[in-house]
C-alpha cells in the first residue's frame, strides 16, 4: 500500500501551548480517514501543517513524497475545506464555483451542479447574507466536486441540518466509490460518520492516541454490567477504560474479549453491551488519573 502522507515526530508549539506533540503516523492512498478528537485537541493545527499553511516547530512532513510548505506541485493535489473558510466581500456562491476550476484540475462542474441542487443552494445570494448551513454547503460542494487526490474536511458541516449531512455522507460515499481518493474527515459527530471510515486517527492534547483500522476498533471494547462482586471477579486485572457504579451494580468498560470469554461472562450472569466508536473515544480521551483514584 502506498502512503501519501508520512509524518514523523511532528510538533507544533504556540507560545506556551503544544498543539501537536510528537505525532508520527502515515495516511494510505485512497482511504477515508477519520481524524477525531475533542475541541482543541489539535485537529485543525495538524491539518494546517499537512497542507503547508503553517510551519512545524519540529519533525518531518511528507505529502506525495515532498514537503507541502510553499510547494505548488503538492498543494495542487490538495483540497482543504475548513469550518472557518472566508470568502471575499460581496462574493456570491456562483463566484466560488466559477473560480474553483482554476485551482482544481479534476473539478467536475456537472457534479457541482447536481450538488448545488441537492443542497438547494441559492447561487445568486451574497455569501454574507447566507445562513451558516448554506455557507457550509458551499465548502462541502467544493470539497466533493474538486475530486482532489487528497481532500481534507475540517468540521465541514457547521449549521447543516441532519438531512443535508446525510446528503453529504451519501454523495461522498458514492463519489468516492466511483473516484477513489484519500479523504481525511475531521469531525466530532463520530457516530454519524463511523461506518464511512476505513481508518481512524484520534488526537488528544496534541498526541495521536489511536491509529487503527476502523473495523479493528469496532468491537474492541465491551461494557460488562452486573453485580459488583461478579463484575470485579470477571474484570480481574484487565485494563479498565471506564467504570460506573450504582448501588450494588457495576458497569465496567474493558478492551478485547474473546468469544469464550463472552460465553463465560454470560454464564456468570453478566450482561455485555457493545461500545460504539464514539463511546470508545470518549472513554479513551476522558479518563484522568483523578477519576481512577475516585474509584479506588
Amino acid at each position: 500500500m502506498t502512503n501519501i502522507i508520512e509524518v514523523s515526530g511532528l510538533t507544533k508549539r504556540f507560545s506556551g501551548v503544544t498543539a501537536v506533540d510528537d505525532a508520527t503516523f502515515s495516511v494510505g492512498e485512497n482511504k477515508i480517514y477519520g481524524l477525531l478528537g475533542r475541541n482543541g485537541a489539535g485537529k485543525t493545527t495538524l491539518m494546517q501543517l499537512l497542507t503547508g499553511q503553517d510551519f512545524a516547530t519540529k519533525g518531518e512532513i511528507s505529502v506525495f513524497g515532498q514537503s507541502p510548505v510553499e510547494n505548488a506541485s503538492v498543494l495542487q493535489h490538495i483540497s482543504f475545506i475548513k469550518e472557518s473558510q472566508r470568502y471575499p466581500e460581496d462574493f456570491r456562491a456562483k463566484h466560488v464555483f466559477r473560480s474553483a476550476p482554476w485551482f482544481f484540475s479534476n473539478w467536475d462542474a456537472d457534479f457541482a451542479e447536481q450538488l448545488i441542487a441537492d443542497f438547494r443552494l441559492p447561487l445568486n445570494r451574497r455569501i454574507k447574507k447566507m445562513s451558516r448551513g448554506q455557507v457550509s454547503a458551499i465548502g462541502v460542494i467544493v470539497g466533493l466536486a474538486s475530486r482532489a487526490p487528497l481532500t481534507f474536511f475540517d468540521e465541514p458541516y457547521l449549521g447543516l441540518d441532519a438531512v443535508a449531512r446525510q446528503t453529504f455522507y451519501d454523495r461522498l460515499l458514492a463519489d468516492y466509490a466511483e473516484h477513489p481518493r484519500t479523504v481525511v474527515l475531521s469531525t466530532h459527530l463520530i457516530d454519524e460518520v463511523s461506518n464511512l471510515l476505513e481508518h481512524v486517527l484520534v488526537i488528544d492534547e496534541g498526541r495521536i492516541i489511536i491509529d487503527e483500522d476502523a473495523e479493528t476498533l469496532r468491537g474492541s471494547a465491551t461494557t460488562v454490567v452486573g453485580t459488583r462482586p461478579a463484575v470485579d471477579a470477571f474484570v480481574g486485572a484487565r485494563e479498565v477504560l471506564h467504570r460506573d457504579a450504582i448501588g450494588g451494580l457495576a458497569s465496567v468498560t474493558i478492551t478485547g474479549l474473546s468469544a469464550q470469554e463472552r460465553k463465560d461472562a454470560t454464564a456468570a450472569g453478566l450482561e455485555l453491551a457493545p461500545v460504539s466508536l464514539q463511546q470508545l473515544i470518549v472513554r479513551r480521551t476522558n479518563t484522568s488519573e483523578k477519576e481512577f483514584e475516585a474509584i479506588a
Binding site: I32, L173, A174, Y176, A177, E178, N195, L196, E198, A214
Partner: peptide
C-alpha cells in the same frame, strides 16, 4: 459499491 451505498458503509468494508 451498491452494497456500500445501500448500507452507508465504506466500500473497503
Amino acid at each position: 459499491n451498491e452494497f456500500a451505498a445501500f448500507y452507508r458503509i465504506n466500500p473497503a468494508t
